[in-house]
Amino acid sequence: MLGYIWLFLIITSIIAAAFTGRVEKVTFAALNSAKDAVTISISLIGIMALWLGFMNLAEKSGLISLISGLIKPITKRLFPQVPPDNPAIGNIALNFSANTLGVTNAATPIGIKAMEDLQEINPKKTVATNAMCTFLAINTAGFQLIPASAIAILIAAGAKNPTVIVAPTLVTTIIALCTAIFVVKTLEKLPVFAVEKYKEEE
């Protein structure tokens, strides 16, 4: 599916560029974006290493399984295939908390740690598991308490009362989160998306 979206983006860009006369700009953007992708990946390494170091300490000290235990009642429904004491559960909870508080630079490395834990119990290493998809559906719903960057932009545009967006944003994001969970749980049961349909390649 991502392949189709990818192709759609490329083809529509080229067609649109032909109409708008921006062919050269689009070519430049394509090459430049590839460079940016590497710059971003490399610049993530430091923060990633720092957090993965701390998360390893937290895991070995039993902090992660402590958190896993606390939220068992919720997570056993969301992630039935993951053993409740698996560190993945604790890391998913921490990733969600970090995103909720807007501490995004911690959220990504912790989330990646959760993905690694989930990958360990994944029999097909190149195919996503239900637990991974559920985790990412929750993550991409973008739940956070204070939309800090949106508020910052409103202030920059001269807003006198930017925090009025907090309540409606919270209502919207809760609805989006519930939808994400409902949709991902429904889709995983469809035969088109069954794990058995996907071959592992290497």
Binding site: L2, I5, I112, K125, T126, A128
Partner: peptide, 29 residues
């Protein structure tokens, strides 16, 4: 602002998280 604050950059998140463990088939995500 509500639109920006209530959602995430879905395709970026999927690329980073699945990429970090080498998943190529994203299934229903």
């Amino acid at each position: 602002a509500v639109m920006v604050g209530s959602s995430e950059t879905t395709l970026y998140v999927l690329a980073v998280y699945f990429g970090s463990v080498g998943i190529k088939k994203f299934r229903h995500a």
